[in-house]
C-alpha cells in the first residue's frame, strides 16, 4: 500500500512536469510527435532508474561535500549508454531526438531525485520512486505530444485520426504550440484541483 502510494505520487500529486515544473526543456522540445515523446520518456525512465539504484546503493559511502559531482558522473554515464545504444539500434529515433539525448544529463528531474530521494532511501523504495517519477514524466510528455500531433499533423503515433479535409494547424508543431499546450494543460489541471476541493468540502 505504501509502495503504491509512493508510485502514484510521481504520477499525480508530485508529477514532475505539471506539478514540480522540472525537466521542462525536453518536454516542450520533443513533444512534436507521440513517437518521439514515448522514446524520450523511455530514455528518461531508464536513466532515472539506473541512477537512482546506484546512488541509493552507494549512499552510505559518498562524502556529503562531493556528492553532486559524483551524482553527475553517474548520471552522465547512463545517459551516454542510452545515447550510444539508441544510435546503434534506433537510428531514426536518435536523429529526431538529437541534442536532447545528451541533455538528459541536466534534466533537473534526475539530479533532483538523486539528491532528494535516492541519496536518503533504500534501494527498493528508490526503484519505486524512479518508476513513479519516470512514468509521470512520460505520461505528461505523451499528453502534450498527443494534442500537438493530432492538431498539428492530423495523426496520432503516425496513424491518421482526423479526416483528410482537416487542414493541420501548423502552429501546434512549431514552438508556440508547445507553450500554449502546456500552459492550457496546467491551467486545466489547476481548475480541476480547485473544482475537486470545492466538492469535497
Amino acid at each position: 500500500m505504501q509502495l503504491m502510494k509512493e508510485f502514484i505520487k510521481g504520477i499525480i500529486s508530485e508529477n514532475p512536469v505539471f506539478r514540480l515544473m522540472l525537466g521542462l526543456c525536453p518536454v516542450l522540445a520533443t513533444s512534436t510527435s507521440v513517437n518521439n515523446a514515448i522514446g524520450m520518456g523511455l530514455a528518461v525512465i531508464f536513466v532515472l532508474f539506473c541512477s537512482n539504484v546506484i546512488v541509493s546503493l552507494i549512499r552510505n559511502w559518498v562524502p556529503a561535500k562531493i556528492r553532486i559531482p559524483i551524482y553527475i558522473s553517474i548520471i552522465a554515464t547512463f545517459v551516454t549508454i542510452v545515447d550510444l545504444t539508441m544510435a546503434g539500434y534506433f537510428p531514426e529515433l536518435h536523429k529526431s531526438l538529437g541534442l536532447f539525448i545528451p541533455l538528459i544529463v541536466v534534466n533537473c528531474i534526475i539530479l533532483g531525485r538523486a539528491e532528494a530521494f535516492a541519496g536518503k532511501h533504500s534501494v527498493f523504495s528508490s526503484i519505486i520512486d524512479a518508476l513513479g517519477m519516470g512514468t509521470g514524466f512520460t505520461i505528461a510528455l505523451t499528453a502534450i505530444a498527443t494534442f500537438r500531433e493530432i492538431l498539428g499533423n492530423g495523426t496520432w503515433l503516425g496513424i491518421p485520426v482526423l479526416r483528410t479535409h482537416f487542414e493541420p494547424v501548423l502552429l501546434m508543431i512549431l514552438s508556440p504550440g508547445a507553450f500554449f499546450t502546456i500552459g492550457l494543460l496546467i491551467g486545466f489541471l489547476n481548475w480541476l484541483e480547485h473544482y475537486r476541493k470545492i466538492h469535497h468540502s
Partner: peptide
C-alpha cells in the same frame, strides 16, 4: 487573470505569444 491560469500557466501562454512573434 482567471484563477486557474495565474502564475505559471499564464507565463507559458505569454511565452507562446513571444515565440510566435520571434517566428
Amino acid at each position: 487573470v482567471p484563477k486557474a491560469m495565474r502564475g505559471t500557466p499564464i507565463a507559458f501562454i505569454m511565452a507562446g505569444c513571444m515565440a510566435l512573434a520571434f517566428l
